[in-house]
Every structure is written in structure tokens, then in C-alpha cells.
Amino acid sequence: METFLELALQRQSDRAFDMSRPVEPEKIERILRAACAAPSACNAQPWHFIVVDDPVLKNQAADATSSRVLGMNHFTKQAPVHIVIVEESPNITSGIGSLVKDKQFTQIDAGIAVAHIVLAAADEGLGSCIIGWFDEKKMRKLLGIPSSRRVLLDVLLGYSVQEHREKKRKDFSKVISYNKY
């Protein structure tokens, strides 16, 4: 990638992965370093990342993301790596700020970290997809996550076999204004 904008435009949500090609551990580590470098309110870093790359366990995690009734997420078993994002408690200043400003800073911060994950994955030549639809109770039990913690997202990583799609975005005039709404 030559520029950040090119990287952002190239990244897409991939739903087909090369199941025969594992993701190299050094790439996962660089992606996680990028995630840990993400900004957070009051530097709380309210996240925990669980890398699920054991084939049996990642298939069980994939089962927790799919729904037969709604026909959702049946592609998730193709991804060789799942990174499960767990919401951790904020530090005191971020927690107080969340209450005073009525904003969920921990969830905002986790979203920023996930953006770092998917962009770092694209930079490493990997495809990714952010999954928010899953059985949280099942995922928590499967990965030994305490009941006091929320499982926010599951990010799939792997070598994509999908063609690059042109991004469909709203016109700038619909989403951007200067100096007033």
C-alpha cells in the first residue's frame, strides 16, 4: 500500500477464505500490536483479544456465530483465525467519563481497536470480516470468558479468495458538512 487512504479503500469484509493456507504467527502478532496501539479514552485499553487458531476450537467458535434459522455467517468456518474481542473494565477516569457523558467509551475504544485489526490485516495481505452476530453465552463458555465480561465482536482473519469489490459509500454531501449540521 502506498497511502493510508489506499489501504482503507482496499480493505473489505471478506466472506470466503483459503482454508488450506494458515495465517503466519508473526502476522497475527503484528496485527495484535496494531490493535494494542489503538487509542482509548483515558488510555484505559479496555479490551482483551483471544486468538482462536486451534482448528477444532475455531470451528466451535464459528458454530457460535452461525444461525440456521436466519442463514447467517455460514462462511465463518473457512477462516483459519478468529480474534474474539472481550470488553474489559475501564480505568476510573474513563469509567466516570462514560457515566458523566452517557457514552460507552469501552465499546467505542474496542471498535477503534477492531478497526486497527482489520486495517493491519489488510496491510499484511489478509482478508477479514467483523462478526457481531453470535451466541455470546456459547462463546463465553467455549473460551472460558468470565460471566462478568461482554464478548463484543469476533474478527475473522485469513487469506481471502474473494475478488476485490468496489466500495459503495454514501455521497460526501450526505455524510459530511462543515461548520454546521
Rank of each mutant, 00 (worst) to 15 (best):
A122I: 04
D63C: 07
S20V: 08
M1R: 02
I117T: 01
G111A: 07
V175P: 00
N43F: 10
I117M: 07
I28R: 04
I131N: 01
I130F: 08
E163H: 10
V81P: 02
A38P: 01
D171A: 14
L126W: 00
Q10G: 00
I108S: 06
I130G: 06
A110N: 13
L126S: 00
L153Q: 11
S147R: 09
Y178R: 15
P55Y: 02
A41M: 14
A62M: 03
S13C: 15
S128V: 06
H164A: 12
A34C: 05
F4Q: 05
K103H: 13
L32H: 05
F134H: 14
D135I: 06
V69F: 14
G95W: 11
F4K: 01
K77R: 11
R68P: 09
K58M: 08
E136N: 03
S20L: 10
L143P: 04
P22T: 02
L5H: 01
A64L: 02
Q162S: 10
A120F: 04
T76H: 06
K27D: 04
A35H: 09
F172N: 12
G144N: 09
P25H: 09
R68A: 13
G71M: 05
K58V: 06
Y181P: 05
E124G: 02
Y178V: 15
L5T: 10
Q12F: 06
E163Y: 07
D154L: 09
E29H: 09
E2W: 01
A8V: 15
H74E: 11
K101I: 02
S40G: 09
P39K: 11
L126D: 01
I145F: 03
I130P: 07
L142F: 04
Y178T: 12
Y159W: 09
F4A: 13
I117K: 00
N59S: 14
R149D: 08
K141M: 03
S89R: 10
H164Y: 05
Q162L: 10
L5V: 08
A35N: 08
T106L: 07
R33L: 13
L32R: 06
I176M: 08
A41L: 08
E88K: 14
G95T: 08
L57T: 15
Y178E: 14
A16K: 12
Q45G: 00
K58N: 09
L126V: 01
L7G: 01
L119K: 01
S94R: 06
L142R: 10
T65D: 13
R68I: 11
